[in-house]
Design a protein around this nucleic acid. Structure first.
Lengths: 142, 142
DNA sequence: GGGTATTGGTTGAGAATGTAACTATCAACG
DNA sequence: CGTTGATAGTTACATTCTCAACCAATACCC
């Protein structure tokens, strides 16, 4: 079989299977797209970020970030204030409402992931982590 | 940081990065969508498959498989013949043209992947494989 | 048989994504 | 200054995906 041992296929499949449960949480339960969810997370961790900074961190194309920002702003979860020195740039930061939303969703996400990984032994987790680190090093992500 | 150590995020990111090069081959160079490419691969390996069988093997939702089949059929890369016993069912199989296309694309895909993984030592590859196998066992894929 | 439920597969509407073009602002260089 | 080129971010359009409804054929069951 060609596909079974084929790395991009294996990774994509595993990513999809792993995301199934957690996606349901932010998508169905909280009506967020993935870019919206990731923008929310990054803003929760960083106080204030521009769209460009978010593009790097999410990471995602600027159109996805732009739309995610617009949507979260419409929800009242964040505000944007244009930079005084460079009026092209806008700094986004979560409102109290946005922070509360994140604090509500985050534990649900962690819980879902932990439930999924519950059957794994510490050795399994170690192996998994090491395997992923190999690729992360390859891509300079770590 | 929350996301950096978060498994679904790590997997999705790695899957995206890994797929970047290979996707370009079947998408841009050969004008195929991912479902189309996967259907092609599975048919190349199996002689003849129904849409339902492809759904399991690809794996993908039936609408994606249905559209992939229609598109590949329009290209003349496969033919479908309705089952004699159950006339709802159609068995798809590659035409000579389809087989040739696959034989042209496949080595390009393998080469791109190998180029990507070239910097990895055998030990790295071993670790990576073991890590992925942990998850594949978890999901009953192995 | 004749109604009802299931199953294989397709189609259509609306959301999400990718890509390119666009606006507005800033920088650089004459 | 003023033209040219880059940069931050948004908008528009085409493609793709999701999800539900749908058709046709088969299975169930009285």
């Amino acid at each position: 079989m060609f596909l079974k041992g084929y790395l991009p296929y294996r990774l994509n499949l595993l990513a999809e299977l792993t995301s199934e449960n957690t996606q349901a949480i932010y998508r169905r339960r909280h009506a967020l797209t993935r870019p919206e969810w990731r923008v929310l997370v990054n803003l929760a961790e960083a106080e204030s970020l521009t769209a460009s900074e978010l593009c790097e961190r999410v990471p995602a194309h600027k159109t996805k970030v732009s739309r995610a920002l617009a949507s979260l702003e419409a929800k009242g979860w964040l505000t944007r204030r244009t930079d005084a020195a460079d009026r092209r740039v806008a700094h986004a930061s979560l409102t109290l409402k946005g922070k509360r939303a994140f604090n509500r969703i985050r534990p649900e996400m962690e819980q879902a992931t932990e439930a999924l990984l519950a059957p794994l032994t510490p050795e399994d987790r170690q192996k998994l982590d090491e395997g992923l680190k190999v690729l992360e090093r390859l891509f300079g992500q770590a």
